[in-house]
Simulated assay, not measured.
Amino acid sequence: MTAEPMRPGQGPLYKQVKQRVIRRLIDETWKPGDMLPSEPKLAASFGVSPGTVRRALDELVAENLLVRHQGKGTIVCRHDPERSLFHFFRMVDAVGARPTPDSRVLACRRRRAERPEAARLGLPAGAPVVVIDRVRSAGRRPLLVERLVLPGRLFGALAEVAPEDLPNTLYTLYEERFGVTVYRAAEQLRAVAADERDAELLGVAPGTPLLEIDRLASSLDGMPVEWRLSRCRTDAHRYRVELV
């Protein structure tokens, strides 16, 4: 590995190491499933102490970008279905159990972005996007209806996939087929009333209170890669967040 000395005045050393590791993930020097060099080797490469490297890697492990395997080393995380469900799906039942939702894709198509969609994804007006509409169920009972809007320049080929061939966990598909890793997701919640379409798809009466989850997902370099709007029944499930 080529030596990369840190630069004075660019912030704490461990933060600089963290950003350089992320940059290597972005440029695919290290891909999902790859094992990183040992901490001493990374320390020598970056010109810092092993303790500084360990602190940087600790943060990336906490952020689910890396995972440590005892006796093996540090590995770049994959968006496998189980991890994606645990990390991004927050609906639980009355006893706190997280269901494994099934998905039924209603449509997957390519079109021009509407103004709100372009604004949320940071795209020019009318830029091509891929739109996925689907219903997710728990225990054969409709739980939420959602629309996903994706930049066409990244995911245009998705429009060629038959709806029934789209997987339940899309973040794994983004990573494995398109090389896009979802790093962060910012969500906003609000209460809404079910419109006629919501009511028909979720099996509730029009006007039924629903929880709307507005999620903007971004990649390792901070670029928005998905806007997801979900409307959820809350008669048997709740949205749970654990703060530590």
Rank of each mutant, 00 (worst) to 15 (best):
residue 63 E to S: 12
residue 63 E to W: 06
residue 63 E to F: 03
residue 63 E to G: 07
residue 63 E to C: 05
residue 64 N to T: 12
residue 64 N to H: 14
residue 64 N to G: 09
residue 65 L to E: 05
residue 66 L to I: 04
residue 66 L to K: 15
residue 67 V to L: 11
residue 67 V to A: 13
residue 67 V to Y: 06
residue 67 V to R: 15
residue 68 R to Q: 01
residue 69 H to A: 05
residue 69 H to V: 08
residue 69 H to F: 05
residue 69 H to S: 04
residue 70 Q to A: 12
residue 70 Q to H: 12
residue 71 G to K: 10
residue 71 G to P: 03
residue 71 G to F: 02
residue 72 K to W: 00
residue 72 K to Y: 00
residue 72 K to I: 00
residue 72 K to P: 00
residue 73 G to C: 08
residue 73 G to Q: 10
residue 73 G to H: 09
residue 73 G to R: 13
residue 74 T to I: 14
residue 74 T to G: 09
residue 75 I to F: 14
residue 75 I to L: 11
residue 75 I to H: 11
residue 76 V to Q: 08
residue 77 C to A: 15
residue 77 C to Y: 09
residue 77 C to V: 10
residue 77 C to G: 11
residue 77 C to W: 04
residue 77 C to Q: 14
residue 77 C to M: 14
residue 78 R to S: 08
residue 78 R to A: 07
residue 79 H to V: 02
residue 79 H to W: 01
residue 79 H to T: 08
residue 79 H to M: 09
residue 79 H to F: 01
residue 79 H to K: 14
residue 79 H to R: 13
residue 80 D to I: 15
residue 80 D to P: 06
residue 81 P to G: 08
residue 81 P to W: 00
residue 82 E to I: 15
residue 82 E to K: 15
residue 82 E to P: 04
residue 82 E to C: 09
residue 82 E to G: 13
residue 83 R to D: 01
residue 83 R to G: 05
residue 84 S to P: 01
residue 84 S to H: 06
residue 84 S to Q: 14
residue 84 S to C: 14
residue 85 L to D: 02
residue 85 L to F: 01
residue 87 H to F: 10
residue 87 H to T: 15
residue 88 F to C: 05
residue 88 F to M: 03
residue 89 F to T: 07
residue 89 F to Q: 08
residue 89 F to G: 04
residue 89 F to C: 03
residue 90 R to H: 13
residue 90 R to W: 00
residue 91 M to T: 04
residue 91 M to V: 05
residue 91 M to P: 04
residue 92 V to M: 13
residue 92 V to A: 13
residue 93 D to L: 10
residue 93 D to W: 08
residue 93 D to A: 11
residue 93 D to N: 14
residue 93 D to T: 09
residue 94 A to R: 06
residue 94 A to N: 03
residue 94 A to D: 07
residue 95 V to C: 06
residue 95 V to N: 09
residue 95 V to M: 05
residue 95 V to L: 05
residue 96 G to L: 12
residue 96 G to W: 12
residue 96 G to M: 10
residue 96 G to Q: 15
residue 96 G to K: 14
residue 97 A to T: 06
residue 97 A to N: 11
residue 97 A to S: 12
